[in-house]
Protein backbone atom coordinates (compact mmCIF):
# COMPACT_ATOMS: atom_id res chain seq x y z
CA UNK A 1 0.00 0.00 0.00
CA UNK A 2 2.78 2.43 0.93
CA UNK A 3 4.58 1.39 -2.23
CA UNK A 4 1.41 1.92 -4.29
CA UNK A 5 1.17 5.47 -2.97
CA UNK A 6 4.87 6.19 -3.55
CA UNK A 7 4.72 4.71 -7.05
CA UNK A 8 1.67 6.83 -7.88
CA UNK A 9 3.51 10.00 -6.94
CA UNK A 10 2.78 10.72 -3.28
CA UNK A 11 5.35 13.06 -1.69
CA UNK A 12 4.77 11.54 1.74
CA UNK A 13 2.91 8.57 3.15
CA UNK A 14 1.43 8.14 6.61
CA UNK A 15 1.76 4.85 8.36
CA UNK A 16 1.36 3.35 11.79
CA UNK A 17 2.30 0.36 13.91
CA UNK A 18 0.01 -2.62 14.44
CA UNK A 19 -1.31 -1.45 17.79
CA UNK A 20 -3.31 1.24 19.58
CA UNK A 21 -0.71 3.96 18.98
CA UNK A 22 -2.42 5.20 15.83
CA UNK A 23 -5.96 6.14 14.92
CA UNK A 24 -6.31 3.37 12.31
CA UNK A 25 -5.74 0.34 14.47
CA UNK A 26 -7.26 -2.26 12.16
CA UNK A 27 -6.13 -5.78 11.41
CA UNK A 28 -3.87 -6.13 8.40
CA UNK A 29 -3.45 -2.41 7.96
CA UNK A 30 -0.28 -1.37 9.72
CA UNK A 31 3.40 -2.18 10.03
CA UNK A 32 5.75 -4.18 12.19
CA UNK A 33 9.02 -2.41 12.91
CA UNK A 34 10.74 -4.56 10.24
CA UNK A 35 8.09 -3.61 7.67
CA UNK A 36 8.40 0.03 8.63
CA UNK A 37 12.16 -0.19 8.20
CA UNK A 38 11.94 -1.57 4.66
CA UNK A 39 9.11 0.82 3.75
CA UNK A 40 11.13 3.84 4.86
CA UNK A 41 14.04 2.56 2.76
CA UNK A 42 11.74 2.15 -0.27
CA UNK A 43 10.14 5.57 0.17
CA UNK A 44 13.47 7.33 0.68
CA UNK A 45 14.98 5.58 -2.36
CA UNK A 46 12.08 7.00 -4.40
CA UNK A 47 12.24 10.50 -2.97
CA UNK A 48 9.19 10.17 -0.72
CA UNK A 49 8.84 10.75 3.00
CA UNK A 50 7.30 8.53 5.65
CA UNK A 51 5.25 10.10 8.44
CA UNK A 52 4.59 7.92 11.48
CA UNK A 53 1.12 8.28 12.98
CA UNK A 54 1.17 8.20 16.78
CA UNK A 55 -2.08 10.10 16.90
CA UNK A 56 -4.25 8.23 19.38
CA UNK A 57 -4.42 9.01 23.10
CA UNK A 58 -2.26 7.02 25.49
CA UNK A 59 -4.32 6.12 28.53
CA UNK A 60 -2.47 6.04 31.85
CA UNK A 61 -0.64 2.76 32.28
CA UNK A 62 -0.13 2.27 28.53
CA UNK A 63 2.13 5.24 27.85
CA UNK A 64 5.27 3.10 27.30
CA UNK A 65 3.68 1.69 24.11
CA UNK A 66 3.62 5.19 22.56
CA UNK A 67 7.11 5.96 23.86
CA UNK A 68 8.51 2.75 22.38
CA UNK A 69 6.78 3.43 19.06
CA UNK A 70 8.35 6.89 18.95
CA UNK A 71 11.79 5.52 19.83
CA UNK A 72 11.44 2.87 17.13
CA UNK A 73 10.35 5.43 14.53
CA UNK A 74 13.27 7.68 15.40
CA UNK A 75 15.71 4.76 15.13
CA UNK A 76 14.35 3.79 11.72
CA UNK A 77 14.50 7.40 10.55
CA UNK A 78 10.90 8.32 9.77
CA UNK A 79 10.59 11.88 8.50
CA UNK A 80 8.02 13.10 11.00
CA UNK A 81 5.70 12.00 13.79
CA UNK A 82 2.07 12.99 13.72
CA UNK A 83 0.63 13.35 17.22
CA UNK A 84 -2.52 14.44 19.05
CA UNK A 85 -1.86 13.67 22.73
CA UNK A 86 -0.15 16.45 24.70
CA UNK A 87 1.79 13.88 26.73
CA UNK A 88 2.99 12.05 23.61
CA UNK A 89 3.99 15.36 21.98
CA UNK A 90 5.90 16.39 25.10
CA UNK A 91 7.64 13.02 25.25
CA UNK A 92 8.82 13.16 21.62
CA UNK A 93 9.80 16.83 21.84
CA UNK A 94 11.91 15.93 24.88
CA UNK A 95 13.49 12.66 23.75
CA UNK A 96 13.76 13.31 20.02
CA UNK A 97 14.14 17.08 19.76
CA UNK A 98 15.46 16.91 16.21
CA UNK A 99 12.48 15.02 14.81
CA UNK A 100 9.71 16.87 13.00
CA UNK A 101 6.36 16.90 14.76
CA UNK A 102 3.04 17.28 12.95
CA UNK A 103 -0.22 17.95 14.74
CA UNK A 104 -2.92 15.42 13.92
CA UNK A 105 -6.49 16.42 13.23
CA UNK A 106 -7.22 14.22 16.24
CA UNK A 107 -5.87 17.03 18.45
CA UNK A 108 -9.01 18.99 17.60
CA UNK A 109 -7.08 22.23 17.09
CA UNK A 110 -9.35 24.40 14.94
CA UNK A 111 -8.26 27.92 15.86
CA UNK A 112 -4.99 29.87 15.67
CA UNK A 113 -4.86 30.00 19.48
CA UNK A 114 -5.07 26.22 19.79
CA UNK A 115 -2.51 25.55 17.04
CA UNK A 116 -0.19 28.20 18.46
CA UNK A 117 -0.30 26.45 21.81
CA UNK A 118 1.03 23.25 20.25
CA UNK A 119 3.59 25.17 18.20
CA UNK A 120 4.90 27.06 21.25
CA UNK A 121 4.99 24.01 23.48
CA UNK A 122 6.32 21.33 21.17
CA UNK A 123 7.67 23.05 18.07
CA UNK A 124 4.92 21.63 15.84
CA UNK A 125 6.01 22.17 12.22
CA UNK A 126 2.73 21.35 10.49
CA UNK A 127 -0.91 21.19 11.55
CA UNK A 128 -3.50 19.02 9.83
CA UNK A 129 -6.67 21.10 9.76
CA UNK A 130 -10.12 19.78 10.60
CA UNK A 131 -12.48 19.25 7.67
CA UNK A 132 -14.84 21.94 8.91
CA UNK A 133 -13.09 25.11 7.76
CA UNK A 134 -13.98 27.18 4.70
CA UNK A 135 -11.30 28.49 2.34
CA UNK A 136 -11.51 32.05 3.77
CA UNK A 137 -11.21 30.60 7.29
CA UNK A 138 -8.11 28.64 6.23
CA UNK A 139 -6.56 31.81 4.76
CA UNK A 140 -7.15 33.73 7.99
CA UNK A 141 -5.86 30.87 10.12
CA UNK A 142 -2.69 30.42 8.07
CA UNK A 143 -1.84 34.11 8.57
CA UNK A 144 -1.97 33.71 12.34
CA UNK A 145 0.13 30.59 12.90
CA UNK A 146 3.84 29.92 12.42
CA UNK A 147 3.62 26.40 10.98
CA UNK A 148 2.72 24.68 7.72
CA UNK A 149 -0.84 23.52 7.15
CA UNK A 150 -2.22 20.36 5.63
CA UNK A 151 -5.82 19.80 4.55
CA UNK A 152 -7.80 16.72 3.61
CA UNK A 153 -8.70 16.67 -0.08
CA UNK A 154 -10.17 13.23 -0.60
CA UNK A 155 -11.84 10.63 1.57
CA UNK A 156 -14.18 10.64 4.50
CA UNK A 157 -16.34 13.71 5.01
CA UNK A 158 -16.31 13.70 8.79
CA UNK A 159 -18.19 16.35 10.70
CA UNK A 160 -17.62 15.24 14.27
CA UNK A 161 -14.69 17.01 15.87
CA UNK A 162 -12.01 14.39 15.56
CA UNK A 163 -10.35 13.20 18.73
CA UNK A 164 -13.43 14.23 20.71
CA UNK A 165 -15.72 11.32 19.88
CA UNK A 166 -16.47 8.40 22.18
CA UNK A 167 -19.50 7.09 20.28
CA UNK A 168 -17.81 3.78 19.46
CA UNK A 169 -16.79 3.23 23.07
CA UNK A 170 -20.33 4.02 24.19
CA UNK A 171 -21.76 1.51 21.70
CA UNK A 172 -19.28 -1.38 21.87
CA UNK A 173 -16.61 -0.74 24.53
CA UNK A 174 -13.70 0.01 22.21
CA UNK A 175 -12.43 3.57 22.38
CA UNK A 176 -11.57 5.48 19.21
CA UNK A 177 -9.25 7.76 21.18
CA UNK A 178 -7.55 5.14 23.36
CA UNK A 179 -7.67 2.06 21.12
CA UNK A 180 -7.39 3.80 17.76
CA UNK A 181 -10.48 2.26 16.18
CA UNK A 182 -13.75 3.83 15.09
CA UNK A 183 -16.48 1.25 14.35
CA UNK A 184 -14.09 -1.74 14.49
CA UNK A 185 -14.86 -4.54 12.01
CA UNK A 186 -14.95 -7.10 14.84
CA UNK A 187 -18.17 -5.46 16.06
CA UNK A 188 -19.82 -5.06 12.67
CA UNK A 189 -22.63 -7.37 11.63
CA UNK A 190 -24.77 -7.56 8.48
CA UNK A 191 -28.07 -9.41 8.61
CA UNK A 192 -30.74 -9.84 5.98
CA UNK A 193 -34.37 -9.50 7.00
CA UNK A 194 -37.32 -11.38 5.49
CA UNK A 195 -37.90 -8.60 2.95
CA UNK A 196 -34.33 -8.90 1.70
CA UNK A 197 -33.11 -5.68 3.30
CA UNK A 198 -29.60 -5.64 4.78
CA UNK A 199 -29.42 -4.56 8.40
CA UNK A 200 -26.02 -3.15 9.37
CA UNK A 201 -25.25 -3.20 13.09
CA UNK A 202 -22.43 -2.15 15.38
CA UNK A 203 -22.51 -4.34 18.46
CA UNK A 204 -26.16 -4.61 19.48
CA UNK A 205 -27.15 -1.34 17.77
CA UNK A 206 -28.75 -1.12 14.34
CA UNK A 207 -26.97 1.67 12.49
CA UNK A 208 -28.72 1.42 9.13
CA UNK A 209 -31.00 -0.69 6.98
CA UNK A 210 -30.56 -0.94 3.22
CA UNK A 211 -33.26 -1.89 0.77
CA UNK A 212 -32.44 -4.88 -1.50
CA UNK A 213 -31.58 -2.48 -4.35
CA UNK A 214 -29.44 -0.17 -2.16
CA UNK A 215 -25.70 -0.56 -1.74
CA UNK A 216 -25.10 -1.49 1.92
CA UNK A 217 -22.74 0.91 3.68
CA UNK A 218 -20.41 0.34 6.62
CA UNK A 219 -22.12 0.90 9.97
CA UNK A 220 -20.35 3.99 11.31
CA UNK A 221 -22.49 5.58 14.02
CA UNK A 222 -22.31 9.12 12.61
CA UNK A 223 -23.28 7.88 9.12
CA UNK A 224 -26.34 5.94 10.22
CA UNK A 225 -30.07 6.53 9.86
CA UNK A 226 -32.19 7.21 12.93
CA UNK A 227 -35.58 8.57 13.89
CA UNK A 228 -36.58 11.35 16.28
CA UNK A 229 -39.86 12.68 17.59
CA UNK A 230 -39.26 15.71 15.39
CA UNK A 231 -38.71 13.57 12.31
CA UNK A 232 -40.17 10.09 12.65
CA UNK A 233 -39.09 8.76 9.24
CA UNK A 234 -35.51 7.40 9.18
CA UNK A 235 -32.96 10.03 8.21
CA UNK A 236 -29.24 10.63 8.33
CA UNK A 237 -29.26 12.46 11.67
CA UNK A 238 -25.56 13.39 11.49
CA UNK A 239 -24.42 13.24 7.89
CA UNK A 240 -24.98 11.52 4.60
CA UNK A 241 -22.50 8.85 3.53
CA UNK A 242 -20.60 11.06 1.15
CA UNK A 243 -16.98 11.51 0.17
CA UNK A 244 -14.92 14.64 0.24
CA UNK A 245 -13.34 15.52 -3.10
CA UNK A 246 -11.56 18.85 -3.43
CA UNK A 247 -9.81 18.27 -6.74
CA UNK A 248 -11.60 21.23 -8.32
CA UNK A 249 -10.50 23.44 -5.45
CA UNK A 250 -6.76 22.75 -5.70
CA UNK A 251 -5.97 26.21 -7.13
CA UNK A 252 -7.91 27.87 -4.29
CA UNK A 253 -6.17 25.73 -1.67
CA UNK A 254 -2.79 26.58 -3.16
CA UNK A 255 -3.70 30.28 -3.19
CA UNK A 256 -4.47 30.37 0.54
CA UNK A 257 -1.16 28.73 1.38
CA UNK A 258 -2.00 25.10 2.04
CA UNK A 259 1.35 23.28 2.21
CA UNK A 260 0.24 19.68 1.93
CA UNK A 261 -2.83 17.82 0.72
CA UNK A 262 -3.98 14.72 2.48
CA UNK A 263 -5.70 11.74 0.89
CA UNK A 264 -7.17 9.10 3.15
CA UNK A 265 -5.83 5.75 2.10
CA UNK A 266 -5.09 3.41 4.94
CA UNK A 267 -8.38 1.54 4.93
CA UNK A 268 -8.50 1.34 1.14
CA UNK A 269 -7.44 -1.01 -1.59
CA UNK A 270 -4.17 -0.77 -3.47
CA UNK A 271 -6.05 0.11 -6.68
CA UNK A 272 -7.93 2.89 -4.93
CA UNK A 273 -4.71 4.36 -3.55
CA UNK A 274 -3.00 4.17 -6.93
CA UNK A 275 -5.92 5.81 -8.78
CA UNK A 276 -6.61 8.59 -6.31
CA UNK A 277 -2.96 9.46 -5.65
CA UNK A 278 -2.13 9.31 -9.36
CA UNK A 279 -5.10 11.54 -10.21
CA UNK A 280 -4.21 14.13 -7.60
CA UNK A 281 -0.51 14.02 -8.56
CA UNK A 282 -1.39 15.02 -12.14
CA UNK A 283 -3.84 17.67 -11.00
CA UNK A 284 -1.36 19.20 -8.53
CA UNK A 285 1.43 19.26 -11.11
CA UNK A 286 -0.93 20.95 -13.56
CA UNK A 287 -1.89 23.62 -11.01
CA UNK A 288 1.78 24.18 -10.15
CA UNK A 289 2.53 24.65 -13.86
CA UNK A 290 -0.28 27.19 -14.14
CA UNK A 291 -2.60 24.89 -16.10
CA UNK A 292 -6.16 23.96 -15.26
CA UNK A 293 -6.19 20.57 -13.54
CA UNK A 294 -7.53 17.68 -15.61
CA UNK A 295 -10.35 16.52 -13.35
CA UNK A 296 -10.33 12.77 -13.48
CA UNK A 297 -13.47 11.00 -12.47
CA UNK A 298 -13.02 9.63 -8.96
CA UNK A 299 -16.72 9.24 -8.35
CA UNK A 300 -16.70 5.48 -8.69
CA UNK A 301 -14.26 5.27 -5.80
CA UNK A 302 -16.27 7.36 -3.41
CA UNK A 303 -18.40 6.08 -0.60
CA UNK A 304 -22.07 5.91 -1.48
CA UNK A 305 -21.21 7.12 -4.99
CA UNK A 306 -21.71 10.73 -3.95
CA UNK A 307 -19.16 13.41 -3.43
CA UNK A 308 -18.99 16.85 -1.90
CA UNK A 309 -16.69 19.80 -1.45
CA UNK A 310 -17.86 19.67 2.14
CA UNK A 311 -17.21 22.58 4.40
CA UNK A 312 -14.58 24.13 2.22
CA UNK A 313 -16.95 26.04 -0.09
CA UNK A 314 -19.60 27.34 2.27
CA UNK A 315 -20.77 27.33 5.87
CA UNK A 316 -24.35 26.44 4.90
CA UNK A 317 -23.98 22.79 5.84
CA UNK A 318 -23.38 23.64 9.48
Amino acid sequence: MLRAAVDAGADAVYCGFQNATNARNFTGLNFTSEELHSSVAYAHAHGAKVLLALNSFASAGRFPLWKEAADCGARIGVDAFIVADIGVAACIAHHHPHCRLHLSVQAGASSPEAINFYCCEFGIRRAVLPRILTIPEIRQLKAEIPCEIETFVFGNHGLMVEGRCSLTNYAVGISTNMDGACSPPSKVRYDRDSAGAVIASLGSHVIDRFAPDEQAGYPTICKGRYCTAARPEPFYAFEEPISLNLMEMLPALAAVGVDALKIEGRQRSRAYVGNVVGGFRKAIDAVAAGRAPDLIDLLALTEGQKQTQGAFMTKKWR
Partner: peptide, 21 residues
Protein backbone atom coordinates in the same frame (compact mmCIF):
# COMPACT_ATOMS: atom_id res chain seq x y z
CA UNK B 1 -26.19 12.09 30.25
CA UNK B 2 -22.61 11.72 29.01
CA UNK B 3 -21.21 14.02 26.32
CA UNK B 4 -19.95 11.71 23.55
CA UNK B 5 -19.19 13.90 20.55
CA UNK B 6 -19.22 17.47 19.29
CA UNK B 7 -19.48 18.80 15.77
CA UNK B 8 -19.44 22.02 13.79
CA UNK B 9 -22.83 21.02 12.41
CA UNK B 10 -26.00 21.51 14.42
CA UNK B 11 -27.90 18.22 14.52
CA UNK B 12 -30.89 19.75 16.21
CA UNK B 13 -31.31 22.20 13.34
CA UNK B 14 -30.75 19.34 10.90
CA UNK B 15 -33.48 17.22 12.51
CA UNK B 16 -35.83 20.16 11.91
CA UNK B 17 -34.57 20.63 8.33
CA UNK B 18 -32.83 23.88 9.19
CA UNK B 19 -29.23 25.03 9.04
CA UNK B 20 -27.28 26.21 12.06
CA UNK B 21 -27.51 29.83 10.95
Amino acid sequence: RVPLAISARCFHARAHRRSKD
